[in-house]
Design a protein around this nucleic acid. Structure first.
Length: 494
RNA sequence: CGGGGUGUAGCGUAGUCCGGUCCAUCGCGCCAGGUUUGGGACCUGGAGGUCGCAGGUUCGAAUCCUGCCACCCCGACCA
């Protein structure tokens, strides 16, 4: 008997937890709301990091590192920013413990209170803009294009593995520019980078859009986002890129002398994606047997499993398998040979399916005789026989095809779940019966947005950058009947 | 923060209502040896437990009482 996984139909939330835990991505920890990312999960994150990091470097960014702790006073400099984050900040108040005079443990030393309390960063705009002030005098100092890989803490009331934990890993880009146009261009450029990453690497189709005022990042002038759809019909924000205008420059008094010898506030952007993307990967592609990882990010792209009946066979197969493994590795494939003898092939098949390894190769007496190898795709479960000549090339082609197919499948699902609604009844019906995105008119007011959320639990995921099928220009708000400039995408979301 | 649930070996569990027959059940996993090996093998033997924590009731507590803690799920808040 193996590891039981709750089916998606029976209990989607439990299915998700089962997958994350049983595939070895992560574990619960002793700390409420915090998780342990296990080696397999971390390897996946490292692959994501490596890919994104290269994209950031290719677009001219450099990595740096800013402090984990932020003076409390910094957070309150930007009004909207503090409003947005105040409720979920962890605060450091003391710098020393001492042994408890009353017992065996330790207590916080009341003598060691900090003069100014420190916030554990929920995001780094404030500490970074406080720093940029010292770096920027002239237009010649601009642009500053910096990214940092870091952990952040947001004291969430309710947490979910990868999707929302009190501490999480992410990258945050923070750029400074001489003009609004340039900053806006940067925000849009990074949105494109995220889109490309999601679609080409995660095989996750996303919708690019603009956040409504209520959903906008605290402190931003404009928030761009990519929205993805999970298999339970709920949307997930996969990445955001903000045009911050001069809000933080004004809050931290960051001015520069422009070419005309005039003082001007600097223009800013910030953008980020987090380990939440791992949750997206699980929920967008996984099935009742386990994960399905896209080849371009999978820690193990190919697993090779020997099948034998006795030691003599085993020796011959083992020798051949190692040659094959070598040729796969030489071709740059992340291949693994599982020659463990204490579990049988069937057990391994199930285990690697659970782990979402895109391609499984089996080598036994039969294959050896026929000079081929059996290949089974994780995405379609299709079983193929590959001749052993130039096997690495064939495997590479298969991996490419799996990557492509996974995207196509997710895209087909997503496209089937964008439904225009023309009345409130229809709106609710779509959300309840099929889920996904509802494409509907909205009068553009925050009151209506909030009212819709209260009534339906759906939020405006984004105002799409390019129109979707069903777009009909101006119309009437699905709730109020007031004039609407255009349709926007609503969904229940994570 | 509200509602619900759970806490017994690495994991999943029985036992809790109705205290003793429980120095705790079963399955998986683990260890040793052997037979096996094409979809989660089998046999034999073995190791492994502060029954979440603290206090109380009792001749006797996994079981009853009080307090506490932790985690999970659902909701409000959020990437």
């Amino acid at each position: 008997m193996g590891k039981e996984i709750t089916s998606r139909l029976q209990d989607y939330a439990q299915w998700y937890n089962d997958l994350v835990i049983k595939s070895g991505l992560a574990d619960y920890s002793a700390v409420r709301g915090c998780m342990v990312i296990k080696p397999y999960g971390y390897a996946l994150w490292e692959n994501m990091q490596a890919t994104l990091d290269k994209m950031f470097k290719d677009t001219g960014h450099q990595n740096a590192y800013f402090p984990l702790f932020i003076p409390k006073s910094f957070l309150s400099r930007e009004a909207a920013h503090v409003e947005g984050f105040a409720k979920e900040c962890a605060v450091v108040t003391h710098y020393r413990l001492k042994s408890d005079p009353a017992g065996g443990g330790v207590i916080v030393d009341p003598e060691a209170a900090l003069e100014e309390e420190l916030i554990v960063r929920p995001t780094s705009e404030t500490i970074i803009w406080n720093t940029y002030k010292n770096w920027i005098q002239s237009y010649r100092d601009l642009p500053i294009l910096i990214n940092q890989w870091a952990n952040v803490v947001r004291w969430e009331m309710r947490t979910r593995l990868f999707l929302r934990t009190a501490e999480f890993l992410w990258q945050e880009g923070h750029t400074a520019h001489a003009t609004a146009e340039e900053a806006m261009e940067e925000a849009r450029r990074m949105l494109e980078v995220y889109t490309h990453f999601a679609e080409s690497y995660m095989a996750l189709p996303v919708i690019q859009g603009i956040k409504s005022p209520a959903e906008r990042f605290a402190g931003a002038v404009e928030t761009f986002c990519i929205e993805a759809l999970m298999q339970d019909g709920k949307a997930l924000q996969a990445g955001t890129s903000h045009f911050l205008g001069q809000n933080f420059a004004k809050a931290f008094d960051v001015q520069f002398l422009n070419k005309n010898n005039e003082q001007e506030y600097v223009w800013a952007t910030s953008w980020g994606v987090s380990t939440r993307l791992i949750g997206a990967l699980v929920m967008a592609h996984g099935d009742d047997d386990g994960l399905k990882l896209p080849p371009r990010l999978a820690p193990i792209q190919v697993v090779l499993i020997p099948v034998y009946k006795n030691d003599e066979q085993r020796a011959a197969i083992d020798a051949r398998a190692r040659e094959i493994l070598q040729s796969l590795k030489q071709a740059g494939i992340r291949a693994q040979y599982d020659d463990a003898d204490h579990v049988r092939p069937g057990w391994k098949y199930a285990e690697y399916e659970l782990k979402g390894v895109p391609l499984r190769l089996s080598l036994g007496e039969r294959e050896l005789q026929q000079h081929q190898i059996e290949a089974v795709r994780r995405d379609t479960r299709e079983k193929l026989s590959l001749p052993l000549d130039h096997v690495a090339e064939k495997v590479l082609r298969l991996l490419d095809d799996i990557q492509q197919q996974m995207f196509e499948q997710a895209k087909a699902y997503r496209d089937q779940h964008i439904t225009p609604a023309n009345s409130w009844e229809e709106f609710i019906h779509i959300l309840d019966e099929q889920g996904g995105f509802v494409y509907a008119h909205w009068d553009g007011t925050e009151e209506t947005e909030i009212r819709i959320k209260e009534l339906s639990k759906a939020t405006i995921r984004c105002i799409p950058l390019s129109p979707w099928p069903g777009d009909d220009g101006p119309g009437k708000c699905v709730l109020t009947g007031q004039p609407s400039a255009r349709r926007v995408l609503f969904a229940r979301a994570y």
